[in-house]
């Protein structure tokens, strides 16, 4: 009985403590699961613009002309002539790919997705270092939550009855999937 009280208290307190992180990881998990379909961290919007014929000029002068025609008053981070027919102008969270001499511009704007960027940063452990240890601690916490969770309720609703079947069903899903993939 004392042991069960300890299990319940541990499960409850860890549940409160890790609730926030669980929500962050769950939201990021769904976002990252669909990485083939979208960029979960950045919203990239590209707009095609026509500037008209551009003069043959040195790279810097050409970049200045492109910025002037687009009415952009910003110092580029860098300018690169990728090929005789292509110029790239990089601005803060904005990339211009210019077709020379035709003057077609792919104006790409990059924006961090609100909250998702931070959630993915944590979930994917992009920062490494300290967060690796915090994430490890969280993983141990989840393990304790899972282990204590199955012993909270005794009797027919716990491991002695329904709980047992639900536990087996939950384990069965990944096993069945792996077996299906192997077959």
């Amino acid at each position: 009985m004392r042991l069960r009280r300890l299990i319940i208290a541990t499960h409850r307190d860890l549940g409160y403590f890790f609730a926030g992180l669980t929500v962050i990881y769950a939201v990021s998990g769904v976002a990252v699961n669909h990485i083939e379909d979208w960029n979960p961290s950045y919203a990239v919007r590209t707009e095609l613009k026509e500037l008209g014929q551009l003069p043959e000029a040195p790279t810097e002068a050409l970049a200045d002309e492109v910025l002037r025609r687009l009415a952009i008053d910003e110092e580029p981070t860098s300018v690169v002539r990728m090929a005789p027919h292509q110029l790239k102008v990089f601005l803060d969270h904005r990339n211009l790919t210019v077709s020379i001499p035709g003057g077609t511009v792919a104006d790409e704007r990059v924006r961090r997705r609100f909250a998702l960027f931070e959630a993915n940063f944590l979930h994917l452990n992009t920062g490494k270092g300290l967060w690796t240890w915090i994430a490890d601690l969280y993983a141990v916490g989840l393990l304790v939550l899972a282990c204590t969770g199955i012993f909270i309720i005794p009797g027919t609703k716990g491991l002695g009855g329904r709980g047992r079947w639900l536990l087996l069903a939950g384990l069965g899903i990944p096993i069945a999937y792996l077996a299906w993939m192997a077959w």
Binding site: M82, N95, V110
Partner: peptide
């Protein structure tokens, strides 16, 4: 890419091991 010549080379890393931020374009 070398900004003087326009020649570039791809740096390929293992998925998830290193993640280059998309917003780093244009930076040295």
């Amino acid at each position: 890419t070398d900004p003087d010549t326009g020649q570039g080379v791809r740096i390929k890393v293992e998925d998830g091991v290193i993640v280059f931020p998309y917003e780093s374009m244009g930076h040295r």
